[in-house]
Design a protein around this nucleic acid. Structure first.
Lengths: 153, 153
DNA sequence: GTTGGTGCAAAGGATTTGCAAGGTG
DNA sequence: CACCTTGCAAATCCTTTGCACCAAC
């Protein structure tokens, strides 16, 4: 079964090292996990657990939602994935793309990102006054994008 | 029925103007709404819908959870309450206390707040580069408080 | 073969909705 | 006495869990 999906490793840019990472911990790579990782990695930005479940089930019928949830939790513990809280709820993305600070417009829904430099400046500001080490990537920042701010004013 | 709870208006600092606000829109003040507003106003900081339901039902048995949800939505539309997204989910608070930027420690759960001045500085930073009008109060900011940051390092 | 994983079914919890009965202004 | 509100019950959603069977290594 696993062999049928091995090709996916190359064609969809799913990192081979995920498999090694799991094996190193005595865990196993299964077709389901492969499909789930591939789905998240293939996604630009973020994707919700239920959306992942829907898509994965589309290409690999029979995959249970509980498997998706268990896998996402596992992959986050292992450090492959990470989730953030957006207006729509929890959303997953590759851990490497975690250095995003989400700016989501509450009016048009557009999604921008703060640069690392800006994020660092904000962190410094918070650290200086509160000694608080902020993780600005975990929650989004809502507001109005340029266009909507102008339209509203 | 309503009269029995009128005293609450004075004893618990529930704003009388809420009643007037509702009446001005052709809406009605009911004992249930009064109890819900009082519960949120009595709370330091924020409180979840389910917690409100639990407490209100404690002092006024029979109040249905659906009433709580409908009331919270209504009171937010009217501008009396507002909700933010914290680690635990959505939480309500009086609209006047909205100028909080929540700093919640992911390790010990402590909850600090950014001052208006700091929040403004951060908003400026974001506005300059992105033209994005950030509302830093809607989502919390996670991270590690001073104590936990030291313990972790 | 071990041991970890998956599907299935059921349980939970948080919200939402339709509707008839009830209360407010 | 209109018409807004509530309670009730049912229906969704999303997520979690227990367990027997199955598959990865």
């Amino acid at each position: 079964m696993l062999l049928r999906y091995a090709a996916m490793l190359r064609t969809t840019d799913t990192p081979v090292h995920v498999m090694e990472l799991l094996r190193g911990r005595g865990l196993r790579m299964t077709p389901q996990r492969l499909a789930i990782v591939a789905e998240v990695f293939r996604t630009q930005g973020h994707i919700s657990p239920s959306a992942i479940a829907r898509r994965v089930q589309g290409e690999m019928p029979g995959v249970n939602a509980s498997t998706v949830y268990r896998t996402l939790t596992l992959l986050e513990e292992v450090g492959v994935l990470q989730h953030s809280h957006l207006e729509s709820g929890a959303e997953y993305h590759r851990a490497e793309e975690a250095e995003h600070v989400h700016l989501s417009c509450r009016r048009c829904g557009s999604d921008d990102a703060l640069s690392l430099k800006e994020a660092a400046a904000m962190q410094d500001l918070i650290r200086k006054r509160h000694g608080f080490e902020a993780d600005l990537t975990h929650f989004a920042i809502t507001g109005l994008c340029t266009g909507c701010a102008a339209a509203t004013a």
